[in-house]
Computed example of a mutant assay.
Amino acid sequence: MVMSEDRAEADGRLVGSDRVLALLIELARRPDGASLDDLAVALDSAKSTVHRALGSLTRSGLATRESLGRYSLGDEFLRLAFAYQESRPEAARVMPALRRLAERFGETAHYAVLEGGDVVYRAKVDPAVGSVRLSSSIGGRNPARVTGVGKAILAHQLSTTAQAMKWAREHPVEQRTPNTLTSDKRWAEDIARVREQGFAVDDQENDPGINCIAVRVVTPSGEGALSVSALAYRTPLSTLIDAVEEVRAVAASIV
């Protein structure tokens, strides 16, 4: 007996286009690829139904079947994603500024926006040499509380300590590093400093060994923040703070 889609949805099972989309997301989480068995377990679906969904994705080029029966995202998916990212007006506006910052400091420059309790990275430029793997990626998220870009935006939105405390209570954060400000009170005090000085820092609060300076920017697309994320041993936080006026000038060049 075939279960109707309405019944399947009521039971919490993936059906039709939902299954295809869930499969696409699952493949994106597996850069090394995954077998049919792995995907069926991850989606809690029969192998035959997952295989049909994979057929739809592979025919469109959004997935590819590799050796040993493993599946991964296809080149067409990557082409579409990168083409879309590069053509977004927001990215086009901030990329020249990010390139200038990456070249000036020899470190990674980011542009991010706030979504709920997270920041989402919309653009990123690594230095020509000496780049390291950070926890950020285009489209990726990090808790706003532990990032310079997040604090730069929130300091403008949370105009009082009471507002900052309320926001902090609603968005608790885990101890990601020894420097993470898990105390709501200390975080609210930090936001007050950001508001007063006009820039934010991440003193190894999100990634060990990585510090950051960030300033808020407003573009025709909306509000965001620009940052320089640096290896602490190579570019100390004090060096970034001393150069904050340069970062502000680059941010002001975005039109």
Rank of each mutant, 00 (worst) to 15 (best):
residue 71 Y to Q: 00
residue 186 R to S: 07
residue 11 D to E: 14
residue 103 E to C: 03
residue 16 G to T: 10
residue 243 A to F: 01
residue 185 K to G: 01
residue 51 H to Y: 12
residue 85 Q to F: 02
residue 89 P to T: 03
residue 124 K to T: 09
residue 124 K to E: 09
residue 185 K to V: 03
residue 176 R to H: 14
residue 185 K to P: 05
residue 230 A to G: 05
residue 246 E to H: 15
residue 178 P to W: 05
residue 183 S to G: 06
residue 210 I to Q: 06
residue 54 L to Y: 04
residue 91 A to M: 02
residue 105 F to K: 06
residue 234 R to W: 08
residue 137 S to Q: 11
residue 111 Y to D: 02
residue 98 L to H: 06
residue 83 A to E: 13
residue 188 A to V: 12
residue 238 S to I: 00
residue 169 R to E: 13
residue 55 G to Q: 07
residue 4 S to T: 15
residue 192 A to W: 02
residue 24 L to G: 00
residue 255 V to A: 14
residue 1 M to S: 15
residue 239 T to C: 02
residue 174 E to W: 01
residue 229 S to C: 12
residue 202 D to C: 15
residue 229 S to E: 05
residue 145 R to Q: 01
residue 82 F to T: 10
residue 200 A to E: 03
residue 70 R to L: 14
residue 130 G to A: 07
residue 51 H to A: 13
residue 67 S to M: 04
residue 254 I to S: 07
residue 113 V to Q: 13
residue 69 G to V: 11
residue 1 M to T: 10
residue 246 E to N: 06
residue 42 A to C: 10
residue 117 G to E: 09
residue 128 A to Q: 05
residue 120 V to Q: 08
residue 141 R to I: 07
residue 96 P to Q: 07
residue 210 I to K: 04
residue 33 G to Y: 01
residue 148 G to Q: 03
residue 206 N to R: 11
residue 171 H to G: 11
residue 59 R to A: 12
residue 40 A to N: 08
residue 223 E to N: 08
residue 9 E to M: 12
residue 189 E to R: 05
residue 158 L to M: 08
residue 224 G to T: 04
residue 89 P to M: 09
residue 122 R to Q: 15
residue 125 V to D: 04
residue 185 K to I: 13
residue 146 V to S: 12
residue 112 A to V: 03
residue 180 T to I: 08
residue 210 I to Y: 06
residue 221 S to R: 09
residue 148 G to N: 05
residue 178 P to M: 10
residue 13 R to V: 07
residue 122 R to D: 07
residue 31 P to R: 09
residue 16 G to C: 05
residue 78 L to R: 15
residue 105 F to T: 06
residue 150 G to C: 07
residue 78 L to A: 10
residue 138 I to L: 15
residue 92 A to L: 13
residue 218 V to N: 13
residue 40 A to V: 08
residue 172 P to N: 01
residue 134 L to H: 12
residue 236 P to R: 09
residue 57 L to H: 09
residue 121 Y to T: 10
residue 1 M to L: 04
residue 146 V to Q: 08
residue 54 L to H: 01
residue 21 L to E: 13
residue 101 L to C: 09
residue 43 L to A: 06
residue 253 S to N: 06
residue 199 F to S: 01
residue 196 E to S: 14
residue 90 E to A: 09
residue 8 A to E: 12
residue 222 G to R: 13
residue 225 A to S: 04
residue 147 T to C: 13
residue 41 V to Q: 10
residue 46 A to K: 02
residue 227 S to H: 04
residue 242 D to L: 03
residue 66 E to K: 11
residue 159 S to Q: 14
residue 77 F to I: 00
